[in-house]
Nucleic acid binder design. Sequence first.
DNA 1: CGTAGCTTTGAGGCAGTTCAAATATGGTGG
DNA 2: CCACCATATTTGAACTGCCTCAAAGCTACG
Lengths: 250, 250
Amino acid sequence: MRGDIGSPPIEKLRALSRFLPFGPVGMKDIAVLEELAGPTRTLAKGATIRAVGEPVSTLDLLVKGWAASTIVLQDGTRQLVSVNLPGDVLGLPALSLAEPIDDVVALGPVTVRSIPLSGVTRLFEEHPRLAATLFLIAQEERMLAMERIALMGQALAKTRLAGLFVRLNERMGQFDDGWDNAFELPLTQRDMADLIGVTTVHLNNVVQDMRRDGIIQLTRSELRILDLDRLLALAALSPWRQSTPGWLPA
Amino acid sequence: MRGDIGSPPIEKLRALSRFLPFGPVGMKDIAVLEELAGPTRTLAKGATIRAVGEPVSTLDLLVKGWAASTIVLQDGTRQLVSVNLPGDVLGLPALSLAEPIDDVVALGPVTVRSIPLSGVTRLFEEHPRLAATLFLIAQEERMLAMERIALMGQALAKTRLAGLFVRLNERMGQFDDGWDNAFELPLTQRDMADLIGVTTVHLNNVVQDMRRDGIIQLTRSELRILDLDRLLALAALSPWRQSTPGWLPA
DNA sequence: CGTAGCTTTGAGGCAGTTCAAATATGGTGG
DNA sequence: CCACCATATTTGAACTGCCTCAAAGCTACG
């Protein structure tokens, strides 16, 4: 996104970054998206952005900070279903249900912008290209979920954790040229455990393992990947290339 | 490729049934969908409907039979990521990737109708309501995937299997009034094992368990749920109600 | 009617859990 | 600025769900 004129603030572009990779997006489209998103809300760490059972009345564009979608089972155990980074649109899957079954919580301080559902209607009615792009964004997240199901079902904890780190690293470095495979990680070990479906005790064992092997350096605030090749080998994931479909409306 | 012209509504309606629950669909809409779907293809059990690495050039409407999306990991283990029933649209998630990472295979003899991607363009451009409905269908499947991630991460094999049976039963009985919780199940125990992420040996143990408890009756071809209440208790799933959103374009 | 694939059973082994407790760490109010 | 407290990390040890390996019945289909 270098070379833009009039230069809307970088942060705003980042907030719309999910829309860009699927194909060119004109300034007019950006303006449309800008207009759809309502006022900024700021929430503290741990706050619930969207709650189980609350019928969806708005979507939320995550502008800053990380969030996670969580499902709590009857026995009280918690699963983190997905992690949301800046630019993600929160609440899409819940649109299909009368009452959502997942909570979306802020993993740190976050700022979001609400998008009224009437905005979604207008997107589909008046901006088919953007609507189709939104559709693709959702499909991409679904693909991520499918991959995660495969890892959860077939892979050992170490592989699952490696997979998580690899995908997070990819997404964080996506728009950075001199990316050095290190980033601030606002996840506790408990969060990571809940993400890959193991206990904190076992997660800690796996982390220690990876540290001993010199693959990662994990502190309370930062993840630094020391040996990306070995991490990739561990994760055993298929490469991942976004499409730039020819069928998008003009 | 038999050309049933005339008006054999039942099977055709069933093939479009996923579009109906989100809100009224007019005859004109049905005609549009009818027109989008191309010629009928028939495939044998075990056939690959869509393959890893093959860029998506069409979608497929599953008219008859069951299919499953599978991901094969580097070590050769296979995960069944989702099961597709008649009416499902195959290939949606893969739209977001240049090269899909999942295979879609026929679990029995199936018939599908291809939908060219140009049809998707037209849907978004000219039929926003149908496009939005397609979007919702995909979100619903994503919600199912999220629920599955939660089960895979937190629940024991018995609970996971119960969850699978519950959701399949729901979908199979959705349009049946006198539904008696029994249906033809074209899944081998190996398939079920791959779906919930355990070995066939262990899956068999769990099945024996449920049989002994009088909860299910499972033969090679049919699943009969004998005690739905106990199965539901085992599965520990949240109730599930589709939304009929007010924001759909007219 | 043979054979490949599916189901079932058994026994030993390991990844991951549970329970418990010690040790950091960061944020808060005094 | 320190003392305190809740929360996060780390460690140990016993226990179990599930896996692996192996082999014997089944079933269906060509």
